[in-house]
Design a protein around this nucleic acid. Structure first.
Lengths: 155, 155
DNA sequence: AGGTTGGTTCTCTATGTTGCGAACTAAAAA
DNA sequence: TTTTTAGTTCGCAACATAGAGAACCAACCT
């Protein structure tokens, strides 16, 4: 693939990643910066390079970068004798990804358990449904932990 | 637990479920209706009952119920000689839940594969990270399918 | 035919969100 | 000491969104 074409496609992918992560509650600009640091060949950007690349104001960049750092999506490094921060993507480790899923499932589970406890009739349609889902979630959480351990061992 | 206390707690849980599902892209009112149909002892509500219970306008109720139906969260039944619709929760089946997770993972995977293909240097920091995550996702998708099959057999 | 019931659709307003500009700060350089 | 660099913070304007209201419609009732 020709250089300019690849660059173009990378930028399209950044946009695409941006849209994807907006659905996870990131703001548009923030989500696109994530993409930038993930797909471009240049893998460390300074504050000003991000401002220029994304054509955003310094304030937007500042807010976005702070958010991404707090959320653990990016980090920055510095080099001796250089006051600039070099921002880079923090690898989305697979275990964290699974932990994230587990956390969400537990949240769901908690809600389901509360709902069940508050049901007057434990044989009602919904109560039975909820009981089923509860069991299922338990099963999957238990086995996902196993999978995680198994995968860690393999690598 | 006393009746009014349970009712109170159920309503709090509805609110809590509402907040939870807002993060999944449901609108506030819509998310709370989900909760209502999930936790209350009364498990079938008519349109007007929902309007009264949630203190919302007919238009909001109409829009919310339509969305929930399209998304497969609720359904309605009718009874002969009664023009009203009786809305109720559709059980969040565990397999669907897993499918949902798989779908999200595949979306991520697709993005990662695109990003990898567009990398100039496949040994760069990010490229290696992405490669790792890619492998991990493959592993988990494969095994989640097994788990799903296993669970289906058991039940 | 006219009214009632059970909703739907359209438009508008109030409320939130996003990202900008400008003013600010802290550290380094001149 | 003053200037420059590298950002941060605050207030605001532009834009997006949710939900209300009112008009509407289709089926049934009288």
């Amino acid at each position: 693939m020709e250089e300019p074409e690849r660059l173009q496609k990378q930028k399209e992918l950044v946009e695409c990643i941006g849209r994807l992560h907006e659905k996870d509650g990131f703001q548009p600009v923030t989500a696109r910066i994530m993409g930038l640091l993930m797909v471009m060949d240049k893998e460390e950007y300074t504050f000003d390079e991000i401002v220029q690349e994304m054509k955003i104001s310094k304030s937007s960049a500042s807010t976005a970068l702070k958010n991404l750092e707090i959320r653990g999506v990016i980090e920055y490094v510095t080099y001796p004798g250089d006051r600039k921060r070099y921002f880079r993507f923090v690898s989305g480790d697979i275990n964290e990804m699974i932990d994230g899923i587990e956390k969400k499932m537990k949240l769901q589970l908690d809600v389901i358990e509360q709902a069940l406890e508050l049901k007057k009739n434990p044989d009602s349609r919904n109560a039975k449904f909820l009981e089923n889902v509860k069991e299922g979630i338990h099963f999957f959480i238990k086995n996902m932990r196993k999978l995680k351990a198994e995968y860690s061992k393999e690598h």
